[in-house]
Structures are given as structure tokens and as C-alpha cells.
């Protein structure tokens, strides 16, 4: 695996603590499915959660243990079934309802297509299809935008991103991602604030595209 662009420590900590919006959790879980490095870092942040848990405590009411014992399941445990391999990581497949062929694309112009995924409202998640050589219109960000490459590759003002790479963009970055000429690019993008498009046409379309 040649992943070069990883999740930030802040995102991994937020995922460990359970404080990120669902759309960001989806990007993090998808990247973790492809990246052992970040998974090891996450484990360390979860250990912090475990250590903190040891410190806090509020007494249970009497009878709490008995009612817990009464509801214990004595059936044999379910066997673990590993997810079948696919182009999309397993957490993403459960949001799409299948693999790449199950994505319900909608055109957003210029050959670019998107599929909005159902998440809680504090941030939105979408799959983006950028045809080989095509571009997402030049834009800035009002909040944080996470873009995870699932197929193909794209490049922008900062670097080139391949499968497994995640780009973390914020207010300071204005960019125009362009897909590699060799293959169509599919990305998972999540943002907690609307994008800021520099040219007029995308700006006019924005309310309809929910970007």
C-alpha cells in the first residue's frame, strides 16, 4: 500500500472519542479500512479513552447487577463473518447498499456525478465521480472538507492523491481537483460547511447540488 496522505491526529482522536459528525466518521472508518498505520494510531487514542474510563465512576442503583444478570443471553455467540472484499471499503458499502455498481449517481455538470449519502445533518457526505482528466470547479472551504480517493487519482494545487489517500482541506485552501488522465476517479467527500465556489455557474447551481 502506498498511502501517503493520512488522517490528522485530531481526526483520529475525535473518532476515538466519538465526537465527530457521522459524515466524518464515515471517511475515517473508510480510510482505516485501508490503512494499518492510522489504525495503530487510533488504537492508542482509544487506549486513552480506556484509561480515562478507569478514573470516573457513579454508583449503580441496587438491583442493577441482578437485572443485568437476568437479561444475559446464554445462546452460543454468533460467528464472525469477515466482509467480502470489494472496491468500496465495508463501512461505505453499508451506506451505499452495495459496491460501486450500486451507487445511484446524479449528474452535476461537466461529466462530474455525485451521490449524497444519508448521514446526520451536522456534516454531509457524498461520493464523487470525476471522469478521467475532468475537474471539480475551483472552490474554497468554509469549514473542513475530507476527500478520500477510492478509485483512480486526482491532483490539485497541493499534491497528487491516489487510492487510500485522504486530503484534509480547511478555510486556508482554495483548490481545483483534477482527475488523472488515465482513469475515472471516485472519491468520498465530507464537509461540515458549504463550499465557496469562485466562478458564477457552480455558485448558481449550489443550492440544487446541496454542496
Amino acid at each position: 500500500m502506498t498511502i501517503k496522505h493520512h488522517l490528522t491526529e485530531q481526526l483520529l482522536m475525535g473518532y476515538a472519542a466519538g465526537t465527530l459528525p457521522e459524515a466524518f466518521n464515515l471517511v475515517v472508518a473508510s480510510h482505516l479500512s485501508m490503512c494499518d498505520d492510522c489504525r495503530a494510531t487510533l488504537a492508542a487514542y482509544e487506549e486513552i479513552g480506556g484509561a480515562l474510563l478507569e478514573e470516573a465512576g457513579v454508583a449503580m442503583s441496587t438491583g442493577g447487577l441482578d437485572s443485568a444478570l437476568a437479561r444475559l443471553d446464554t445462546r452460543a455467540p454468533e460467528p464472525v463473518r469477515p466482509a467480502a472484499p470489494g472496491a468500496l471499503p465495508a463501512p461505505l458499502r453499508s451506506y451505499v447498499g452495495g459496491d460501486v455498481d450500486a451507487i445511484r449517481w446524479r449528474s452535476v455538470g461537466g461529466g462530474v456525478k455525485q451521490a449524497i449519502l444519508p448521514t446526520s445533518e451536522s456534516a454531509s457526505a457524498r461520493l464523487l465521480f470525476i471522469p478521467a482528466g475532468a475537474a471539480v470547479p475551483d472552490h474554497g472551504h468554509r469549514g473542513m472538507e475530507l476527500t478520500l480517493v477510492l478509485q483512480g487519482a486526482f491532483a490539485d494545487e497541493t499534491d497528487r492523491f491516489v487510492r487510500g489517500d485522504v486530503e484534509v482541506a480547511d478555510q486556508d485552501l482554495e483548490h481545483m481537483p483534477v482527475a488523472d488522465i488515465g482513469a475515472d476517479c471516485i472519491c468520498l467527500a465530507a464537509t461540515d460547511a458549504p463550499l465557496r465556489f469562485t466562478s458564477l455557474i457552480p455558485r448558481l447551481l449550489q443550492p440544487f447540488l446541496k454542496i
Binding site: G18, E22, N25, V28, A29, S30, P82, A90, P91, T119
Partner: peptide, 10 residues
């Protein structure tokens, strides 16, 4: 919210 979990972390 749903909690997306990574693939192999069972």
C-alpha cells in the same frame, strides 16, 4: 447516529 466501523477491526 450510525457509527461506521472499519473493515477488519472485529
Amino acid at each position: 447516529q450510525r457509527r461506521p466501523e472499519p473493515e477488519d477491526l472485529t
